[in-house]
């Protein structure tokens, strides 16, 4: 169980996130949605202590989460990565084992097997010797998904995993999410994708600086909530858009 209580972020005097509280049970796939600058990434980062929280606590299995970071797999936004970095697909995924291997040790056979399996799962094993910059956006995201899998974590945080990826990568990601969910893992992902993928989520957190709504996609995506999150002008057309694509 992931328990978040009154978590708030106030960065250099700029309001990032008003106190939010929520709980996530094992086997839940939770989406965090909201407009740009709503604090979706900030929330994910604050959960892990990557940005200093101005208040609140985050517990996982009754202990503070930042003391058990080895149980977390975090996938940053695509824009945070320099894709010209001289590194191959294989070594990106091998990074997942850094913490488990510990200082001064290089990967042995066990680590290699884990990395191989993760790459096979996302159908990227054939491209393992490619430089990461030679891949398409969707392939790059699959590599990062493999890195998350190879961490063998219990808690998965994805920052905008669907941005800039093709249909194939999206399909593989959703399959893997489904598998992880059935294994009782907790998954949190921020997204501004409004397509079919929302249907796969157990639960949505609608965010705009504060938590506007929390519940099943149907409960959350009401005209009233969307108006609150996106403003009067945008809220209504967005909801009509949803009715055609999402509630059908």
């Amino acid at each position: 169980m992931l328990e978040v209580q009154q978590l708030a972020v106030n960065y250099r005097g700029v309001r990032g996130l008003d106190p939010v509280s929520f709980q996530v049970s094992p086997g839940q796939l939770v989406g965090i949605i909201g407009p740009n600058g709503a604090g979706k990434s900030t929330l994910l980062k604050a959960l892990l202590g990557l940005v200093p929280a101005s208040g609140g606590v985050v517990h996982y299995c009754t202990c503070p989460l930042h003391q058990q970071l080895e149980r977390v797999a975090y996938i940053p936004q695509r824009s945070q990565i320099d894709w010209d970095y001289p590194i191959t697909v294989w070594n990106v995924v091998m990074m997942a084992r850094t913490r488990q291997l510990g200082w001064f040790r290089s990967p042995g056979r066990a680590a290699k097997e884990i990395v191989k399996a993760a790459l096979a799962r996302v159908e990227m094993i054939d491209l393992r010797d490619r430089r990461i910059g030679e891949l398409s956006g969707g392939q790059q995201q699959r590599v990062f998904l493999a890195r998350a899998l190879a961490q063998q974590a219990d808690l998965f945080l994805f920052d905008e995993p669907f941005t800039g990826v093709d249909k194939k990568a999206e399909a593989i990601m959703l399959e893997v999410f489904e598998e992880l969910r059935s294994q009782g893992k907790i998954l949190l992902l921020s997204t501004h994708e409004w397509g079919q993928s929302l249907n796969q989520l157990d639960r949505l957190l609608l965010l705009n600086q504060c938590l506007i709504a929390d519940g099943s996609p149907q409960q959350v995506m009401t005209p009233e909530n969307l108006r609150q999150a996106y403003g009067t002008h945008l809220g209504k057309p967005l909801h009509q858009d949803l009715e055609t694509s999402f509630f059908c």
Partner: peptide, 8 residues
């Protein structure tokens, strides 16, 4: 960010 997230 990823490195920080695994606790390095």
């Amino acid at each position: 960010t990823g490195a920080q997230a695994i606790g390095l």
